[in-house]
Nucleic acid binder design. Structure first.
Lengths: 138, 138
DNA sequence: AGCGTTCATGGGAATCATTCTCACATAGGT
DNA sequence: ACCTATGTGAGAATGATTCCCATGAACGCT
C-alpha cells in the first residue's frame, strides 16, 4: 500500500544518459520495461548502466514526463506521455498505447469516494486489449 | 505485458492449508500481501509453508474467489471478494476496501476500445484514498 | 484395511526486478 | 584550474515470487 508522491520541479543536472533515455522513449510508441529500455540503449550504442536507467526513469516519472504501469507480473513499464491526466488503452501483445481521457470516470471516482468517507482520492484506470495489427497478425 | 487467463473449474484436492488461507481471508477486510498472510497464519498457529500460501492464493485467484491487486511497489495484495465483476475503493493507509460497481465505465471501456480497433478488451479500475477512520486517526 | 497412484506440501535454492553502496567521473560555479 | 555537489556504473544486496524435489496426505480400487 504505497501512494504516488506529489511531483516536484526537481532541479537536476543534465547528463548524456538522462537525455538518451528520454530520446529513446520519444521514439517508442508503447510501454516498455526498464530492462527492455536498457537493452535497447545498449544495442543502439548508447552505453548506460542499468541503475542509471532506473534512476532516470524514476526522475522522469516524478517530473510527470513519463507514465509508469505495473503489468500483471509486477514488472514496471514506462512510456513517454502527455503531461495532463489521462488513461491508457494498451495492446497486450505489442504494448502499443493510445492515451484516452474520460471525464465522467473522474467525477464518478470522486463521488463514490466521498460517499464512503474517503479523502485524498486518486484512481487508476487502464484498458487492455489486442490492437488491430496484432489481431491481423494472428 | 501479461494478461489474466480464463478461469477454469480446476479440480483441486482439499487440504488443511488451502482452507486455512481462505478462512484467514474471510476474517480480514482489506487487501493483504502474501507475505503478510503467511505471517498471520503462523501467529495464529496454523503453520503453512510460504510456497503453499502462494499456491493457494494463485488457485483462489484462478477460481475467482479472491481478487489480486498490484501496489505501486509491485507487491501483490489479495482479498476475499464477491465473484461478480466489480472494482475497489481502497484505503491507502489501512487497506480497508469497499467493493463498488460502475456499469458506465464498462460500456465506456468497450466503446473506446472499439473506436481504436482493439479487441478482447479488459480493464482495471481502482480508487485509492484515505478512509475516515485513518483520516481521524491522523 | 491395505496399496499404489497422484497430487499437495514445505523448505531451501533459484530467479529476477529493483535498489543500494561506494569509488570514480563530471558539471558548474569561483 | 579548483572545489564541491551531484550523477554514474559495476556489482552486491534486497525482497517477492517461483522452482525443485523429497516427503506426506488424499483418492480409488480391491
Amino acid at each position: 500500500m504505497s501512494l504516488p508522491d506529489q511531483a516536484e520541479g526537481t532541479t537536476r543536472r543534465p547528463s548524456r544518459q538522462r537525455s538518451a533515455v528520454l530520446a529513446l522513449l520519444d521514439g517508442l510508441d508503447g510501454f516498455r520495461s526498464a530492462q527492455d529500455l536498457h537493452a535497447l540503449l545498449r544495442q543502439r550504442g548508447d552505453s548506460v548502466g542499468l541503475a542509471t536507467v532506473y534512476r532516470a526513469l524514476q526522475a522522469l516519472v516524478d517530473d510527470g514526463q513519463v507514465d509508469v504501469l505495473r503489468g500483471d507480473d509486477g514488472e514496471a513499464s514506462y512510456r513517454r506521455c502527455s503531461t495532463g491526466h489521462h488513461h491508457h488503452l494498451v495492446c497486450r501483445s505489442c504494448g502499443r498505447t493510445v492515451e484516452v481521457a474520460d471525464p465522467p470516470v473522474e467525477r464518478w471516482a470522486a463521488r463514490v469516494a466521498a460517499e464512503h468517507g474517503f479523502a485524498d482520492v486518486q484512481h487508476q484506470l487502464e484498458v487492455f486489449g489486442i490492437c488491430s495489427d496484432c489481431a491481423a497478425r494472428g
